[in-house]
Design a protein around this nucleic acid. Structure first.
Length: 681
RNA sequence: GCCGCCGUAGCUCAGUUGGCAGAGCGAGGCUUUCGUAAAGCCUAGGUCGUCGGUUCAAGUCCGACCGGUGGCUCCA
């Protein structure tokens, strides 16, 4: 949206009437509210420097350069001042200044960051727009609502640190987050949604229900799967394995480490050194030489440091008698590399693809063999920054439900189609029916992509065609492709309307090239296969973390770690309870007996809180009639059933993978969860 | 990694201006044997994240580190 004055005949501005029902309108309102917040902060604090104040998916923020720290305790005061500003309902007025005038103007207001931004970030703007609201003036592109009185509901949410222009070397700023709505009801719904999301936090539920644990003694970001979480995972893995077998995938296993050279060939190493665990060396000198070489390359080395290196090397058994002390850095590097070749460098594997590529290369391939589909729950390790770790959603060790397909270019379409179908099927099986696909394409103006233009056109065309035919909702995103090929990412909406980026399918022309993969075609000449990387869930960690939140830990019968709990009315019933338990176990159900010497009310309460799908209450009456009293976690008491009937009822629900969510929400457009996937190979 | 906040029993948390370490739930024991969301009594459980400092005295104040967390940055 742009001011009308900028319109010329050659550059018409498309006009749009924005009403409060419009999605854009909320953004305009929130941005205006950011101005109101900034104005309130400037009234309450001395020497406030203004940075940027944009809108976000759910609200807005404003970055302040301010000595006094703002804390949540200050929110009521700021909100009260904002309320006063809103009540005055002063209009937002726009005016323009030339560059020089603008710089002078903001400098007079002591807004140094704004002045800097005009000089650098907005260097190509001749004329700059400002918005005035009462005494508050801000450099701003707009647009804004007519007056502050339109803000009917707002709330400050939290305060956080941020840097000027997002660079840690720059000035540290205080970021104040808030949200605003056209009416109080909408805001209430939003805030309730936030509360609901908090109640579903997988970290809390994971602890409460014994699903997983992260121990600081094991290490940050390393997930320990407790029996119940492991049960859910095993069930999902078995389920996928069965489905993959049906679709012609072959299982493979690969080790957790691989030689660093493997990743040098694949192109992953050493460019991404920062987010990998440091290499493992077969000889202690390896680490030293590696660091030594780095210093030589960067030139950060002098005689003293070199002497230290030599001594350290001697200490660990590499005397380096003939080290060319007076030679050039290049020659020293050659010398060290020779030594390095005698040791071996391994990486904890950060991705599975190079291993699978080697499996493809383990034998000559004919076009008749293709496609080859290698599937593995491959555990990979990435040294994510400590501040980025988050429960199961962002970890340092993760298991991808990975597979690599090697096929002829002609087979790509069919394979991609089958992958879509697979994703649809597995997501539906856990009740995730609502998702869209983002088709990430190359940026036609960039040269960072490998492979010929023709290849890219074909690949992108194929993905687009299949997506169109699939009837799936999808959007195209230029410039988001991986450097080696286009990809399709799955954005899945959960039970409370949050969107998560989970699985991914990626076409790859890079690795086959780098590893010189081949197959013999019908024409008896060699051809290069195309690789497809795909992971419907992304990683087991993130997927199950998301599932915990999706179900609020109340898993459907087929996934529930404890499916049935038997509640005996008194101890005399125990032998019969054990009989019943064995019958259900024989039918493949996971069941326990609550042996507490408590009354049935207490046992029911415990089972309800433990989110057990079915309870079997057993007393003398049930025993005499040869059955059980069934209680459904959601529906409550279902009354007496014969054991056989109960088993057949539950078996049906389990086999159909029926989802019966107790909690549903219709709130839409709630951007939550994680905004990225374990989708990079 | 950076900034802010937090770290007390298995869990959730209280602990005032520095002055004897607390509760509920859970666990174990005893009593109770009960029909659809909490029966009663008793008991155990702690180097207050770690290390150092200030002080007659530190859970409390200061510093460093470790871990968590809200953001930022990153995400091949």
């Amino acid at each position: 949206m742009r001011p009308l004055e900028e319109m010329t005949e050659s550059d018409p501005i498309p006009m749009k009437l924005v009403t409060t029902r419009d999605a854009d309108a909320l953004g305009v309102l929130r941005h205006s509210c950011a101005h109101v917040m900034a104005r309130a902060v400037m009234r309450l604090y001395e020497g406030v420097g203004l940075a940027f104040g944009p809108t976000t998916g759910n609200g807005f923020y404003y970055d302040f350069d301010l000595e006094t720290p703002i804390s949540e305790e200050d929110f009521p005061r700021i909100e009260a001042e904002m309320q006063a500003i809103v009540k005055e309902a002063e209009p937002f007025e726009r005016f323009h200044l030339d560059r020089d005038e603008a710089v002078e103007f903001v400098s007079e207001l002591d807004q140094e960051l704004k002045a800097e931004h005009i000089k650098t970030g907005l260097a190509d703007h001749e004329s700059l727009s400002f918005y005035r609201q009462g005494e508050f003036v801000d450099l701003c592109r707009g647009p804004h609502i007519p007056d502050a009185g339109k803000i009917k509901a707002f709330k400050l949410l939290n305060v956080a640190g941020a840097y000027w222009k997002g660079d840690a070397n720059n000035k540290h700023l205080q970021r104040l987050y808030g949200t605003a709505f056209f009416d109080k009801k909408a805001m209430k719904a939003y805030l309730e949604q936030v509360e609901e999301a908090k109640r579903r936090d997988h970290r809390t539920l994971g602890k409460q229900h014994g699903l997983f644990s992260i121990s600081s003694e094991v290490g940050s970001g390393l997930c320990l799967w407790l029996p119940k979480g492991a049960t859910v995972r095993a069930l999902l893995e078995d389920f996928i394995k069965q489905e993959l077998m049906r679709r012609g995938y072959e299982p493979v296993y690969s080790p957790h480490i691989g030689r660093a050279e493997l990743y040098e060939t694949s192109g992953h190493f050493p460019y991404y050194r920062d987010s990998q665990f440091a290499p493992i060396f077969s000889h202690p000198a390896g680490q030293l030489i590696d660091y030594w070489k780095q210093c030589l390359v960067s030139g950060e080395i002098d005689e003293k440091v070199e002497k230290d290196f030599l001594e350290a090397a001697k200490d660990i058994g590499c005397p380096f008698h003939d080290f060319p002390k007076s030679a050039s850095n290049e020659e020293k590097l050659v010398y060290l590399s020779k030594w390095e070749k005698q040791t071996e460098r391994y990486l904890l594997k950060p991705m599975n693809c190079p291993h699978h590529v080697q499996m493809y290369k383990a034998q000559p391939r004919s076009y008749r063999d293709l496609p080859v589909r290698f599937a593995e729950f491959g555990t990979v390790y990435r040294h994510e920054q400590s501040g980025e770790l988050n429960g199961m959603l962002r970890v340092r060790g993760l298991t991808q439900d990975d597979a690599h397909l090697f096929c002829t270019p002609e087979q790509v379409e069919e394979e991609f189609k089958d992958t879509l179908d697979l994703v649809k099927f597995v997501l539906a099986s856990v009740g995730l029916e609502n998702y869209r696909v983002q088709l990430s394409l190359r940026d036609p103006d960039s040269d960072k992509y490998v492979g010929s233009e023709e290849l890219w056109d074909v690949a992108e065309g194929t993905l687009r065609k299949v997506l169109q035919e699939s009837g799936l909702e999808f959007s195209e995103c230029a410039g988001e492709a991986a450097f080696y090929g286009p990809k399709a990412d799955f954005m899945v909406s959960d039970a409370i309307g949050r969107e998560w980026q989970l699985g991914t399918v990626q076409l790859d022309y890079n690795l086959p090239e780098r590893f010189e993969l081949e197959y013999v075609g019908a024409d008896n000449t060699t051809h290069r296969p195309v690789m497809i990387h795909r992971a419907p869930f992304g990683s087991m960690e993130r997927f199950i973390g998301m599932l915990i939140e999706h179900f609020a830990a109340a898993f459907p019968l087929w996934l529930a770690p404890e499916q049935i709990r038997i509640l005996n009315l008194n101890d005399e019933m125990l032998p019969y309870c054990e009989e019943v338990q064995q019958e259900f176990r024989n039918a493949g159900f996971r069941t326990t007996i609550d042996r507490q010497s408590a009354n049935v009310k207490k046992k029911i309460r415990d089972a309800q809180l433990d989110l057990i799908p079915y309870m079997l209450v057993i007393g003398a009456k049930d025993k005499d009639k040869g059955g059980v009293s069934v209680r459904d976690r959601i529906e409550g008491d279902l009354g007496f059933m014969t054991t056989a009937d109960a088993i057949s009822k539950l078996t049906e629900e389990r086999e159909n993978r029926t989802i019966r969510q107790a909690v549903k929400s219709n709130f839409k457009g709630f951007a939550g969860g994680s905004d990225e996937a374990e989708n990079e190979y």
